[in-house]
């Protein structure tokens, strides 16, 4: 059987919010190392990769590798029934066709369980090559969410340019042009508030704002976000999930035709 108990159930609620705008359904692949999920959005422009390590769970048991196809809309409805303080347990029998979510209130005076049907998803798996990125930018996640929200008003594409001076986000459209320049933080007193840029070589790429805005639904998971860029390869937007894992979004760039 499979059973994973997470004391900080709110993390799973936030993970759902981070996935459900982009993906309608996905396979949750469970092994003794933990839970992994990889899926493309419907338009195959972006890819989401989630990793939750077994060590991050209060209790984790996976007798046999298990892939659970789930409708994320339904799963989101179920997780909305959990309070932020609840302990959440996911469990399933081997080769089961349902999964059960158990929500325990902190003082155990209320225990809820929800059983959901699983789906048969023949999802193809993509190989993501290890890449030594030309630029990596770490910035406050709220700052990145604000930039995406503000600039997407000006155009459906955003140009992200990284040089040794700093990183510039730009968008242009009918109403005009917006540019936001972030300099590398001088002193890094509060780690999570800092803007840290590592540049091997300058990079400038164009991306669709609507996907960037979908990615920022993960903002509540982490105080900082890391962007990784190299010429002509997808952007990586990574949010750490406490000490249990991460969610990574890959976005294919827009290219000159």
């Amino acid at each position: 059987m499979f059973e994973a108990r997470l004391l900080q159930g709110s993390l799973l609620k936030k993970v759902m919010e981070a996935l459900k705008e982009l993906l309608n359904e996905a396979a949750w692949d469970c092994s003794d190392a933990g839970i992994q999920l990889q899926a493309m959005d419907n338009s195959h422009v972006s890819l989401v990769s989630l990793n939750l390590r077994a060590e991050g769970f209060d209790k984790y048991r996976c007798d046999r590798n298990l892939s659970m196809g789930m409708n994320l809309g339904s799963m989101s409805k179920i997780l909305k029934c959990a309070s932020n303080e609840d302990i959440i347990t996911i469990k399933a029998q081997d080769n089961a066709d349902t999964v059960t979510f158990v929500f325990e209130s902190p003082d155990q005076d209320k225990v809820s369980d929800y059983e959901m049907k699983l789906m048969n998803l023949d999802q193809e798996h993509l190989g993501i090559p290890e890449t030594d990125y030309a630029c990596t930018i770490r910035l406050p996640s709220s700052e990145f969410a604000r930039i995406c929200r503000d600039l997407s008003q000006f155009g459906e594409s955003m140009v992200i340019s990284c040089t040794k001076e700093g990183v510039r986000f730009s968008a242009t459209g009918d109403i005009g042009t917006g540019n936001i320049k972030l300099a590398q933080s001088a002193k890094v007193d509060k780690e999570e508030e800092a803007v840290v840029i590592e540049m091997q070589e300058p990079v400038s790429l164009t991306f669709a704002c609507r996907y960037l805005n979908s990615f920022t639904k993960a903002t509540s998971l982490s105080k900082s976000v890391q962007l990784s860029m190299s010429p002509e390869v997808p952007l990586v937007v990574e949010y750490k999930i406490e000490d249990i894992g991460h969610v990574r979004y890959y976005l294919a760039p827009k290219i000159e035709d």
């Binding site: 195959h44 422009v45 890959y250 294919a252």
Partner: peptide, 14 residues
Amino acid sequence: KECQSAIHKYFSSV
């Protein structure tokens, strides 16, 4: 004109 590329172009199915 910019056109949106697909993620398949960069990552191959395994």
